[in-house]
Design a protein around this nucleic acid. Structure first.
Length: 201
DNA sequence: ATGACGATTTACT
DNA sequence: GTAAATCGTCATA
């Protein structure tokens, strides 16, 4: 049972923290089910956010998904070799989203190792970064724009974890956005305190 | 048409 | 710690 639309219709900051502990599921064409608990996220606040792809109202073929309805995926390709996955939040015309930065892998680990490079030797190497988790779960541009509330290949599931207490969530600045001026210093990255699957920049 | 640049990862000194 | 890998995207012309 996928998480319903209403869950995603809120601010990126609210969604980024609410997603911690929820499960991302990827079902391959051959039926293999890959899944992991979300342990690290970043919020991107749309038009005013100079670190966002939609900064200054930029709207292009690449970031079109961010401008649409909440609960859809925004997957982009960067550095000529990596994909990153976001979950659209807010409302149509308000391009805000949450970048998934790390998962604690729970299902389909053998397939994840097969998808990752030989450098992945331990479970903590599988999904501890935005590019790594997309590689492990075989998430590419072909999944950009999918509706996570009803797609059979990529969706979210609610776990027993409801909302983590503030004391269990560490808040820091976002990674890799030094070019964003004052927005580079905003505390918009969230991760579960002590979780070994969090990325280490 | 062209050039600069990544919401990163990995390998190497 | 430093640097290479690698190409779609976007701004400029």
């Amino acid at each position: 049972m996928s998480i319903p639309r209403a869950f995603f219709r809120r601010s990126a900051v609210d969604l980024a923290t609410a997603l911690l502990g929820q499960r991302l599921v990827r079902v391959l064409d051959d039926g293999t089910r890959l899944a992991g608990l979300i342990v690290e996220t970043e919020a991107y606040l749309g038009v005013p956010d100079l670190a966002a792809h939609t900064a200054n109202g930029r709207r292009t073929a690449r970031n079109e998904s961010m401008w649409g309805e909440a609960g859809h995926a925004y997957v982009y390709f960067t550095y000529g070799m990596h994909h990153c996955m976001n979950i659209v939040a807010g409302a149509p015309g308000h391009p805000v989203a949450v970048l998934l930065r790390a998962l604690e892998p729970t299902e389909g680990l053998p397939a994840m190792y097969a998808h990752r490079s030989a450098a992945a030797r331990r479970d903590t190497d599988l999904c501890s970064g935005p590019g790594k988790l997309c590689q492990a779960l075989a998430i590419t541009r072909t999944l950009d724009g999918v509706d996570l509330t009803e797609d059979s290949r990529l969706f979210l599931e609610r776990t027993r974890h409801r909302r983590y207490a503030r004391a269990l969530i560490v808040t820091t600045t976002r990674v890799g956005v030094a070019y964003a001026g004052a927005w580079a210093d905003k505390p918009l990255r969230y991760y579960l305190k002590g979780n070994p699957h969090v990325s280490k920049p």
